[in-house]
Design a binder for these strands. Structure first.
Lengths: 127, 127
DNA sequence: TATACATATGCTCAACTGTTCATATGTATA
DNA sequence: TATACATATGAACAGTTGAGCATATGTATA
């Protein structure tokens, strides 16, 4: 009896049931569309690289020019070590490419995607 | 004499001087183009929000649907608390909007920029 | 080949971040 | 208005990350 009561209290009404099932269907649908975890993980890793102001400054400085490590350090008032460390991260993420010329190594943005992503973010920030 | 020698060793040749001055000019030019630090900081902060796989999953799940906190938690197998914390960050960054409906709160992407930024990153990742 | 210059890298530490747990707030309904 | 449900939030803790220092590697040139 007490059990019946509790059961009655907890069991959803017909309308509630329909609502819950509808939500379930929507969730199932999304689950199918959702890209693999691995891809979403990589996507987050990519944005993480853009998510540091030192790296953003470095990327922006190369927006229209190739620069060597020392140029960047002087331009942005950063230590050589710091710039070098960050460039390694940018290299690993394929956001910059480089070429050697004598003692210097010139870095530049790897492709148009990098510019596009930065520009897109800039639009959102400047609103 | 020793001083003269050292000076001679250390002083750059004419060609070197020209090269260094050219680099200086380039750096000055970039310094003028570079956006304010504050803007670049905000830009990095924006990307930082995209730079976490939980938040990316949450954003992606809302790509074409509005969802309530509980939907997202079940869909992505996350705790209610975790989802709520992350949604607060997404709200603060103006990446999602929300509306109340009874006890539930439905979240959705704030505007097309959000979709555009994610899509752009996706292109780079899928290469 | 010794020296100076340009860049890279290993290590350490302080600061930051995401999760969890416990609890608070807000809302509908019996 | 008491209860259950949905969401939000504060505190604490573990894991991560960027900067700086010291040093290693690579390259040109006297």
């Amino acid at each position: 009896m007490a059990e019946n009561n509790r059961k009655a209290e907890n069991s959803p009404s017909f309308a509630e049931k329909e609502f819950l099932e509808a939500r379930e269907d929507i969730i199932k649908g999304i689950q199918d569309q959702q890209p693999d975890d691995e891809i979403l993980y990589d996507l987050a890793e990519l944005f993480k690289v853009f998510g540091d102001s030192t790296r953003i400054k470095i990327l922006y400085s190369m927006f229209e020019n190739e620069l060597c490590v020392n140029d960047i350090a002087r331009l942005l008032n950063l230590s050589q070590s710091s710039v070098s460390h960050q460039l390694r991260i940018l290299k690993t993420s394929k956001l910059v490419k480089f070429r050697r010329e004598g003692k210097s190594i010139f870095y530049s943005l790897d492709d148009e995607h990098v510019r596009a992503i930065i520009s897109m973010g800039m639009e959102h920030v400047e609103e």
